[in-house]
Design a protein around this nucleic acid. Structure first.
Lengths: 123, 123
DNA sequence: TCCATAATTCATGAAATATTGAAGTATAAA
DNA sequence: TTTATACTTCAATATTTCATGAATTATGGA
């Protein structure tokens, strides 16, 4: 991750439609969503949505795969991880407690002891 | 954290000088840095730097305190945490392994078992 | 092949953002 | 009080970014 790509990523997230789209895809998970469904969900026009999704792809925040006539967009967790790593590089400087609140932020989502034991896959 | 504030934060990080400044303050830690020192470190003019730091303050990514004639800027880890929480809301949807890589990103910085036991405070 | 569906690409005017120099405010020292 | 230092605010221009409508590409079915 270089600074140019990080700037591209943050610029991608600094526009309402794109931020909404990315958060929608975060919630959608690994299944992803078709471009058309994203446009409907966000109440935006297909061409506008398409151009904004292209921004997110270039920023490596999402990726696309074709499925018949549809194009499925999915959040790129690896890309997001690289971005956060770039942003937080050397954040602690010998004092890990300085960013403990960041860990707490992710804790409700991914508690350390349950990374490989999903809460509920029976329902 | 509402969407407007999140957009302000990402817009703040989408400009070269501001991204550099924020990362510099992340590395500087709780001590922070004076506005003039930041400008020198980044090779930017004082007024340009000042205006860009103001963006980061409004975005709640940094905060300022006065010390004599200097104004000290410091990274706002709580604000950053709120931003990431907003971005990653419901990111797992019952499948925490989906964002395990995000945890790994922060792990080198803040290993789960050493949040309150800094690596080295003797030097 | 012909048509419909799904999505993208292109060009343009409108809106937002960035940088600059000049002027202004606040603190400290002579 | 006068001067210097540290930083910010203001106003203007230049640049970048955005949404829109029209045209284009790709796939699937009749």
């Amino acid at each position: 991750m270089d600074i140019t790509q990080a700037l591209t990523a943050f610029a991608a997230l600094s526009q309402p439609l794109r931020l909404d789209a990315f958060r929608l895809l975060i919630k959608a998970g690994a299944t992803g969503m078709a471009a058309g469904d994203i446009a409907v969900a966000l109440g935006a026009k297909p061409n506008t949505t398409s151009q904004n999704l292209a921004h997110l792809v270039q920023a490596r925040l999402i990726f696309s795969t074709r499925a018949g006539r549809s194009i499925i967009y999915t959040a790129d967790m690896q890309g997001l991880s690289a971005l956060l790593h770039f942003l937080l590089e050397d954040c602690c400087g010998g004092r890990p407690d300085a960013c403990a609140s960041l860990i707490e932020t992710l804790a409700p989502c991914c508690p350390p002891n349950s990374q490989n034991t999903p809460k509920d896959l029976t329902s």
